[in-house]
Amino acid sequence: MAPKRICIVGSGNWGSAIAKIIGHNVKQKKFDDKFENEVPMYMYEEMIDGKKLTEIVNTKHENIKYLPGFKIPENVIAIPDVAVACKNADVLVFVLPHQFVRGVCKQIVGHVKKGAIAVSMIKGFAITDTGIELISHQIKDELKLECAVLMGANLATEVASEQFCETTIGCKDAKLGQMLKELFEAEYFRVTVVDDRDTVEVCGALKNVVGIGSGIVDGLGFGDNTKAAVIRLGLMEMIKFAEVFFSGSKSETFFESCGIADLVATCHGGRNRMLGEAIVKSDKWMEKGSVRVLEKEILKGQSFQGPRVAREVFGMLEKRSLCDRFPLFVAVHKICAREMNPASFIDCLREHPEHL
């Protein structure tokens, strides 16, 4: 069979970090017959000091805006047209904010190679008239192709620094899962493949909500004991949410990197933890659009996924009259929406039911 062409759809800090791994892996001699050497990467065009970001990446081989200080392999080519980037690709690696997925998919319908597959690394939910929709399902429905997921305790800067970590691929097809393991695995980036794809993805979305809660207790000046309570109670709500809305989830999946490991990493070092702390400490928290203001100040134009997921989750819980069973999720949403004082978050923990 001809070597497979890989395309990365997205180029923020996580997209650039995974491009570093993929770009290196496809050049390995042992994979000459499996993967093409060139890796196109779709990059939304931006101007940096009068220069196009794509041109900077393709000449300096560094994403100076979203992942400065780390070299991207020269065989990774930044392309500002997503349809051009995806042309003839056998594997589409989606790694962009979840609210842009549907729009990007519509741009590449008709340009996707027959028999191609996708991998979603996107940690979020889509919201539809019928409720929450997983991003992998959205990609599958829009493009009519199979979609696996990759989630784990993978802070982008640490991955780019080649600090050892693990990740989880959720894939129904064992043979496909093995191919993806070869594509993504590195000496410092260990991959485990499981068939419980939906639960892997649910973990990746919900951990950001709990991460905000962790940051809130940091901002309030509480210590590790309180944060441990947030992690435990948050994990309880994650498991229960999966049971209620995604039947068939396996409890053991929550003990993979996509579950408890990603949750712990997010609650100690993720951007959503940073947001939770900033909400408490900033004098802007009561202002309209305060989360957007903090995004601009902290993330240089990228988005916090947690508040959007929290809003989507709250909408589903409210619709099903389940808010009282998920008090931590509800409190995080209300704090982000400026409907609840952050200081009341501790009462939410103190009064949390022992059994959901």
Rank of each mutant, 00 (worst) to 15 (best):
Q163I: 14
V95K: 04
E252C: 00
I21L: 10
M274Q: 14
M236F: 11
V149F: 00
A116M: 04
M274K: 15
L220K: 12
G248M: 02
I77F: 01
G270Y: 05
N225A: 11
S136T: 05
W285E: 12
S214E: 05
G215Y: 06
F314H: 06
K71E: 12
K207V: 02
T157A: 08
F326I: 13
E201V: 10
L67W: 10
G213K: 08
V57D: 03
D262V: 04
F245C: 02
S321F: 11
E133F: 02
R292C: 01
L233C: 05
D224M: 15
E185C: 02
P68A: 06
K60E: 13
L96R: 03
L143G: 04
K113M: 04
F255K: 09
I212M: 07
G223A: 11
A2L: 15
V332P: 08
L53G: 09
T54P: 09
D196Q: 00
K288E: 15
H98W: 04
F125S: 00
F246R: 01
N154S: 11
R5P: 03
S290Y: 07
H352A: 14
S344I: 14
R320L: 15
N58E: 06
D283P: 13
F70L: 10
L206K: 01
A278F: 05
A186Y: 12
F164V: 14
I127Y: 10
E55I: 07
I117M: 05
T167Q: 05
S321T: 12
N154C: 07
M236G: 01
H98S: 13
G152Y: 04
D32Q: 02
S120W: 03
Q178L: 14
K284R: 11
I48G: 09
E351T: 15
N341Y: 15
I122F: 01
A228K: 13
A116C: 05
M274S: 15
C323F: 00
R325C: 14
D218S: 13
G110A: 07
R102F: 05
F345W: 09
L220T: 06
D195N: 08
L145H: 02
V202F: 00
M286L: 14
F326T: 07
R350P: 09
R350G: 13
P80D: 02
L183W: 01
N37V: 14
E45Y: 03
G315S: 11
